[in-house]
Structures are given as C-alpha cells and as structure tokens.
C-alpha cells in the first residue's frame, strides 16, 4: 500500500475516528480450558489470544529464583497475522516485545508469593493491525487475573502517536507506517506507567499532551477489562447474587 496523501482530513482520520478516539474493543475472558487463565482480545483489527500457566515448576531448573517467581512472557505473531507471510519463530522484534511486555506486567504481580516457581504468559497474535504489543499486554493482564494470580491491579495499554502534525490516540496501520511518531504506553489504573516506548519525534509539549491522551485511553480500556472479567461470572444463574 502506498502512502495516502492525507492521514487526517477535517479532524477525521482515515478510519473515521476522531484524534482521541480508540478503536472498537472486544474482550472475552476464559477462552481456553486447558490454560490456568486465558483471554481473547480484539483491538480494532488486532486479534490476540493470551494464555497463562502457573505458578508452576520451573524448567529448566537453573532459571528458578529462590525468593520469587519468574515471569516468562512469550509474544509471538502467527505466520498468517500479516499480509506478507511472517517467517515463524522468534526474531529480533518479537524478543524485544516479549521483554518489554514482561516488564510491563512484572511490577503488578506479587512474585514473592511463589518462590521457586514460574508464571508463563503466552501471547499469540492472530491478526496484526498496529498496536499488537498493547493488545497483548491488555490480554495478558486479564489472563493473569483469570488464573487467580495475585496482582496489585490490572494493566492497560494503548498507543499515542503523531500523524500530519496532530496527536492521535491508538494508531492504525497506515498511521503507524506513515506517521511521525508512535508511543505505546502501559499503565495501572492509578496512573503508574509500566511501559513507555517511543519511535519518531515529539516535542516536549506534544509528549506531555500525548501522555494525557494515553492515560484517558488506558482508563477507558481498564473499564472494559473490568467489565469483561465480571462478565465471565455474571452469565450464570442468579446474576450478581453471590454467596
């Protein structure tokens, strides 16, 4: 695809969104029976599935920590997730995404509760459309909660960027490819940032403004995450009548 002439026209983006609008989100918790916790997450055109196993025994043994659990995060893109077939297996990019995503979630997990154990998180990207790492973190945080792992809070993530000299929330594929900046951010509902990356250029003021936009985006996502978790158990008899 070639570069569109304009990415924003009259304050409306190519996909019809306003600059501070998120793409539609669809969440389902507990989609895999064999995993301890799981979540399917749709973020615009992104479709990711996250599975959590553990705490469980660490293999290989030498990886285990005697005072806390090890968290392992594997981000993987399916070969069919992008237009041009992606060569399967870990590459430079997915290793990096795995590392930063793990570090985005580690601060909220009570790792010290489970010495000598491992918490494994697997994120598979089924369809990619810019912002897969944020979608993966959103999904993984829900899968962790679903697995009953003690956490300080959930983690929500979304990106801000700059296209046509305008700050926009949650970039789509074209804006990501042809925009001037892309900044994925993950944070807890009380505003503690656990992931912040940036590629491209922003001025200081743009950065500050972008951060605020991302914050409101993450808050909106956090609400949806909460609703999705509660929904898993509300579909049953008695609704919210809990004993």
């Amino acid at each position: 695809m070639s570069k569109p002439e304009k990415l924003i026209e009259n304050g409306i983006r190519l996909d019809g969104r306003k600059p501070d609008e998120l793409r539609p989100i669809k969440i389902k918790v507990g989609v895999l029976n064999r995993a301890d916790g799981s979540c399917y997450f749709e973020f615009g055109g992104n479709k990711v599935i996250a599975a959590v196993y553990g705490p469980r025994e660490v293999h290989p043994r030498h990886m285990q920590k005697s005072t806390s659990a090890v968290v392992r995060y594997r981000y993987n893109m399916a070969s069919f997730s992008v237009e041009e077939r992606k060569r399967p297996g870990p590459d430079r990019r997915s290793i990096e995404v795995s590392k930063v995503s793990r570090e985005a979630l580690e601060p909220v997990i009570f790792q010290e509760y489970f010495p000598r154990s491992a918490i494994d998180i697997f994120v598979e990207v089924l369809q990619a459309d810019a912002g897969t790492r944020t979608a993966g973190i959103n999904a993984a945080s829900l899968a962790l909660a679903d697995a009953g792992i003690p956490m300080k809070s959930l983690v929500s993530a979304c990106a801000v960027g700059k296209v046509d000299d305008t700050l926009v929330l949650d970039l789509n594929k074209d804006e990501d490819n042809y925009g001037q900046a892309d900044m994925p951010i993950a944070m807890t509902p009380d505003g503690k940032i656990t992931l912040l990356q940036m590629d491209g250029h922003l001025t200081r003021d743009e950065f500050r403004e972008g951060l605020e936009m991302a914050k409101s985006g993450c808050m909106a996502i956090a609400e949806m995450q909460k609703a999705a978790l509660l929904e898993k158990y509300s579909g049953q008899i008695g609704g919210d009548a809990i004993e």
């Binding site: 300080k152 809070s153 959930l154 004993e243």
Partner: peptide
C-alpha cells in the same frame, strides 16, 4: 450485600 465480585486492585 457484604459479598461481591472484585478484580485485582
């Protein structure tokens, strides 16, 4: 009711 479904945090 003094019981409810809660999420982490």
């Amino acid at each position: 009711m003094d019981k409810k479904l809660v999420i982490p945090g």
